[in-house]
Amino acid sequence: MLHTVNKSPFDNSTLQTCLKFARRGSAVLLIEDGVYAAARDTAVSKQVQEALKSVSIYALKPDVEARGMQNRVMDGVRLVDYGGFVDLVVEHNAVQSWL
């Protein structure tokens, strides 16, 4: 399953909730304000690194760039463009948008 998260992890518990329900082998795509979770050396980066052991984590590049985050993305989080977003949806059986 593909999960999308569009909220900042510093303001909202959506990422935590998503990670609680994301099963091993699923994918999490950070979009919109969700991409702030992809940054290194933050209050949530340890949690994200821990999650990377069991799920794949992607961040939407246009959203990363819009927010000036392109040089802060932690190792292990893969960047995708909108086409990559489409591919992720195709590759997974269903999409859960954590709004």
Binding site: N6, E32, L60, Y82, G83, F85
Partner: peptide
């Protein structure tokens, strides 16, 4: 909210890929 923008870009990308 950005939702409509993201949806639009997603739709455009999906169409570009022949979906």
């Amino acid at each position: 909210h950005q939702a409509s923008d993201t949806a639009y870009q997603f739709v455009k990308a999906a169409l570009a890929k022949g979906h």
